[in-house]
Write a protein that binds this DNA or RNA. Structure first.
Lengths: 211, 211
DNA sequence: CAAATAGTGTCTTTGAGACACTATCGT
DNA sequence: ACGATAGTGTCTCAAAGACACTATTTG
């Protein structure tokens, strides 16, 4: 049996992929690096982990700080632990996904840029291994959408079926027939007494997720 | 925008859930702690991360060391970062799954005990947050089995259909009809010219996974 | 040939795909 | 009334479930 030696201490940060749906695409909050190394490249946002802070709590705390939201769902994406993943000192990132419902946060106001995962993957201007994270984010959500309720994280507590359908479509990467989508989703939903208004067409009803 | 402060350095270890199928159950290699804290409790195996070693490489290296196998598949399970998850100094664990095909490793020989996930979850004698890891392992594999090829990791390079079916059944937690399983799996398989022998019944053919 | 597991043929049942239809709003 | 999106009814088709059958080995 291998014997245990004293553990190495390593710099650790929490990287949060603040993720939403914008213009019908999956998008993540990024910022342009203003300092070396890799000045000018785009990166996801990261925070340090407090001495007495669980990594999950750090991610949630930071996601709230950045977005200004009082409630936010998070999930861990994974740990990124390559030796040379950052240009300077070795740093392990524990990456989290923070789910922002569509159209509730204004990127300008909070000083970030929502970049679609597609453009991130095509870009040559992404810092560190953040492109890997984007790739992992995309496949993780695509895999999960069919057997979990992740898609609900992209709509608010009260939502319309067409909106929820959009979330599913974005994560799946394909269009769905509304008939079939409704048939599949309805038993998870509870109808409210409210509906949308102000559009020049039949208003959609508001639903909540059944507990 | 939140400003960046100097990152805290934290002790980091890699925990490897050396996982196999034994007696028709999902099982993970554990050892009894011989030292304080939590002496006598059962734990998964962990290793330190070398100064110049990627965390993935540490997991693979350690899994090979322990099992004696030359090739082994691994996947990251996730990072466990609660402040008080270990009894002594704060330590972040990056947990990995190492997949051991059924019936290729003898627990006695390598000095570990394969404990079924079921008993781990029922036991009151599990160290640290390792029960959480077991829970995460189980749901991760159950979720993934239908849309990925993880189940193949539990059989050797050449395998029989009934054996592969067992792997699927264990991960899914239910019995499958062989007819339907074959219909589902056959287009992923390539038949070899070999078959099993020595059993008092029709021998099963050996297959490999189509690339 | 009996026992045991491997492997096949085929009917049934369920659910996903497709699309035409009706409903309700603002202008 | 018209354009636009919400929401429904229903036919079709493909995949999953169920089960009875045949095949091949050893003792």
């Amino acid at each position: 049996m291998a014997k245990k030696v004293k553990l190495e201490k390593i710099a650790v940060e929490v990287t949060v992929l603040i993720t939403t749906i914008e213009d019908g695409k999956l998008a993540v909050a990024m910022q342009k690096r203003s300092e070396a190394p890799l000045k000018g490249k785009y990166e996801f946002l990261s925070t340090n982990v407090g001495k007495a802070e669980n990594t999950d709590d750090a991610a949630k705390r930071f996601a709230k700080e950045v977005t200004g939201l009082k409630k936010i769902e998070i999930a861990q994406l994974g740990a990124y632990g390559n030796v040379k993943r950052k240009a300077d000192e070795r740093t392990i990132s524990i990456a989290y996904i923070a789910f922002v419902p569509m159209n509730v946060v204004d990127a300008k106001e909070i000083g970030v840029e929502f970049v679609s995962v597609d453009s991130i993957l095509k870009s040559k201007n992404i810092a560190f291994d953040h492109k890997d994270m984007a790739k992992d984010l995309e496949s993780r959500l695509a895999g999960e959408v069919t057997y979990s309720d992740v898609a609900f994280n992209f709509v608010e507590e009260e939502f319309t079926v067409p909106n929820l359908q959009l979330a599913y479509e974005v994560l799946l990467g394909k269009k769905l027939y509304k008939t079939n989508f409704r048939r599949m989703i309805m038993d998870k939903l509870e109808i409210t007494n409210y509906q949308m208004a102000g559009s020049a067409h039949r208003p959609s009803r508001l639903y909540t997720k059944k507990k």
